[in-house]
Design a protein around this nucleic acid. Structure first.
Lengths: 173, 173
DNA sequence: GGTAGGTGCTTCGAATCCGAAGCACATTGC
DNA sequence: GCAATGTGCTTCGGATTCGAAGCACCTACC
C-alpha cells in the first residue's frame, strides 16, 4: 500500500488546527454577543456590514455577496429573504441583467450595523487582538492575505460544476 | 456609557476578516472533499481524528470532546449518536463519574480516519500551505497559538451560565 | 445524614444550512 | 426572429446545528 500519507509536520498541522479552532471560537463568541445585543445573526451582520461598510453604493449583487460570505446561493436567498422581511435590505432587479437581483441596505439596516458594531469590535479586540502584539497582528494579516487570494482563485467555490462543461475562457468564445 | 469604542484600523480589520474568510473557505473545501471521498462529515472526522490521533487511549469524555471541537453539547450528542450507529465509536460510562460518558473509537473508526486522512492533508496543503513560505507557516502558528490559548481561557465556552432556578420547589422527587 | 447547588448528558423544538432541481433571462449562432 | 446553451436566483427536501429545559449524579456544606 502506498502509505506514508502524513506529510504534514507539527508546525503545519498546528497552524491548520489553530486556524480552524481560533476562527471557530471567535465566530462563536461574536455570534453569541450579536445574539444578545441585537436581533440579527452573524451571517446577517456580515451581509449588512458588507453592504453598509464595504460597498460605496450600499448595494451589491447576490452572487457577489455569496462569494464574499462563502455561503451557498440558496443560503443567501434565505438570508436575504429574512433581511428583507425585517426591512433591513431591499431587493430589486439589476440594471443590466434582468435576472440579476441587487440587494440594497436600508437606513434601518445601517442603523442596525451601527448599533451592533461597537460590541462586535469589542469582542474581536478582547478575544483575538488583545493577546497579540502589533507585529503579530501585522504578520497575521500578511500571512492570511495571500492564502485568501489563493483560495479565492483556486476552487470555484460557488460555481459548482453545473455540468461537466468547460468554463475556460478559451478559443470557443 | 458613550465610551467611544476605538475602531479597528485597516490591518486589524483585515486580519480579522481574512481569518474568518480563510477558515471558512478552507473548512468548506475540506468538507466537500470529505463528502466526496468518505461517508463522514467534517465534524465527524474531527471527532474521530481527535480520538484516534490525539488521544493515546482512543477514548475521551463527551465534555472534553465538545470543548475541543467548539460545538455545543447537544450537537455532540447528536454526532456521537450517528457515529455510534455507524459503529465507528462506542459509548460507555466513565469509570469515575456515573453520569459521565466515555466515547471510544473502534477499529472501523480508525480505518475511516486512515482512509480519509490523505485527501484531507492534500486539501490543506493545496489550499492553505501551498502559497505560503515556510517562515509564514511558522508565523501563522506562532501567532494563532497564543490567540487560541487566550480564547480557551477567557470565555467559559461550554459552561453556559445555567441561570434560572428550578420551577418546582420541593417534593419534586 | 440531609439538603442545596453544580456538573454531565440527553431530549426537544426551532432555525439554519446545503446541494440538487427548476425556472427565468441572457447570449450566441443560424 | 428562433433555437441552443450558459448564467442568476429561487424552491425544495433533508441534514445539522443550537439553546433551553430536563433528568441523573456528584460535591459541598450544615
Amino acid at each position: 500500500m502506498a502509505t506514508a500519507p502524513p506529510p504534514l509536520d507539527a508546525v503545519e498541522l498546528g497552524a491548520y488546527f489553530a486556524l480552524i479552532e481560533v476562527a471557530g471560537l471567535l465566530r462563536h463568541a461574536v455570534e453569541q454577543q450579536l445574539r444578545e445585543e441585537t436581533d440579527i445573526s452573524y451571517v446577517q451582520f456580515q451581509l449588512l456590514a458588507r453592504l453598509g461598510l464595504d460597498s460605496p453604493t450600499g448595494s451589491e449583487r447576490m452572487t457577489d455577496l455569496a462569494d464574499g460570505v462563502v455561503y451557498s446561493r440558496s443560503g443567501l436567498t434565505y438570508q436575504a429573504g429574512l433581511l428583507e422581511k425585517a426591512e433591513l435590505v431591499t431587493r430589486g432587479q439589476s440594471a443590466d441583467d434582468e435576472r440579476g437581483v441587487t440587494v440594497s441596505i436600508t437606513d434601518a439596516g445601517r442603523a442596525v450595523v451601527s448599533r451592533a458594531l461597537p460590541g462586535h469590535v469589542e469582542v474581536i479586540r478582547d478575544l483575538l487582538l488583545q493577546p497579540l502584539s502589533r507585529t503579530q497582528v501585522e504578520q497575521l494579516y500578511a500571512v492570511l492575505e495571500p492564502a485568501r487570494e489563493h483560495m479565492r482563485a483556486a476552487p470555484p467555490r460557488s460555481a459548482r460544476a453545473r455540468r461537466g462543461g468547460r468554463s475556460s475562457p478559451a478559443a470557443a468564445s
